[in-house]
Simulated assay, not measured.
Amino acid sequence: MRLIFLGPPGAGKGTQAARIVEAHGIPQLSTGDMLRAAVAAGTPIGIKAKSVMDSGALVSDDIVIGIVAERIEHADAKKGFILDGFPRTLAQAEALDAMLASKGLKLDKVLELKVDQTKLVDRIVKRAEEARAAGQPVRKDDDPEVFKTRLEAYNRDTAVVAPYYAKRGQLTDIDGMQPIDAVTAAIEKALA
């Protein structure tokens, strides 16, 4: 099962991906984690990424697709994987499709967590308060101003990815404003 989770920051992609990982035994692939792992492992693509990152520049789509291509060859991803927060742009979506096709693979489902963006800031503030109350570190993304900037970037750059997959008949919308367990149930129903 090869999945993509789309939705703005704070929509619950990470929470739901963790549940799918648990239920289906497929890894959640974060491009940031994969980049750091490739750099640490000194793989050819990791060496390329490190030189770009060391210069302070953003890693190119080619490098990110190369990292994903490398990662999905690992044994734990043979049954499938979840891409969370990737692709972020139309160019990345097209490059991902081309890379998967070159391996004889395709996506099984693209799930978009639909949320009321006006309520997301409240959700993020609540998440930060709950982390503090539990004695856990607060994610730097949970600062309301940082969050608003991330949300603007999502709406500007990433929101165009969902229509791309909708045109291909691969997109399923999930109401992300429901309670967490209801969202999980809706996702499982979409995957059945």
Rank of each mutant, 00 (worst) to 15 (best):
M1P: 07
R2Q: 12
L3N: 09
P9N: 07
P9F: 04
G10E: 10
A17R: 13
E22N: 10
E22G: 03
E22W: 02
A23C: 05
H24R: 15
H24V: 00
G25V: 10
I26N: 00
L29S: 03
L29P: 03
S30N: 03
S30Q: 06
G32W: 02
L35W: 01
R36M: 04
A38I: 03
T43G: 00
G46D: 07
I47S: 08
A49C: 07
A49I: 08
S51K: 15
V52H: 08
M53K: 09
D54P: 09
S55Y: 11
A57C: 02
A57W: 05
L58Y: 13
V59A: 08
S60I: 10
S60T: 15
D62H: 04
D62W: 04
D62L: 12
I63Y: 05
V68S: 00
V68W: 06
A69Q: 05
R71S: 13
K79P: 13
G80S: 09
R88V: 03
A91R: 06
E94M: 05
A98V: 04
M99L: 04
M99T: 07
L100V: 01
A101R: 13
A101I: 07
L105T: 01
K106S: 15
K109W: 10
E112W: 00
K114E: 08
V115Q: 01
L120R: 01
D122Y: 01
D122M: 00
D122A: 13
R123P: 05
V125E: 10
V125P: 11
R127E: 11
E129W: 00
E129V: 00
A133Q: 14
G135D: 14
G135H: 10
V138N: 14
K140S: 14
D141L: 05
P144M: 07
V146I: 14
F147W: 00
R150A: 07
R150D: 06
L151C: 05
Y154T: 05
Y154N: 06
N155H: 07
D157V: 04
D157L: 02
T158F: 11
V160S: 11
P163C: 12
T172R: 14
T172C: 09
T172G: 12
D173H: 12
I174V: 11
I174S: 09
D175T: 05
G176H: 00
M177N: 15
Q178L: 15
P179V: 13
I180A: 12
I180V: 15
I180T: 12
I180E: 11
A185M: 12
A185T: 15
A186S: 15
A186L: 13
A186P: 08
I187G: 06
I187F: 10
E188M: 14
K189Q: 12
A190G: 14
L191S: 06
L191D: 01
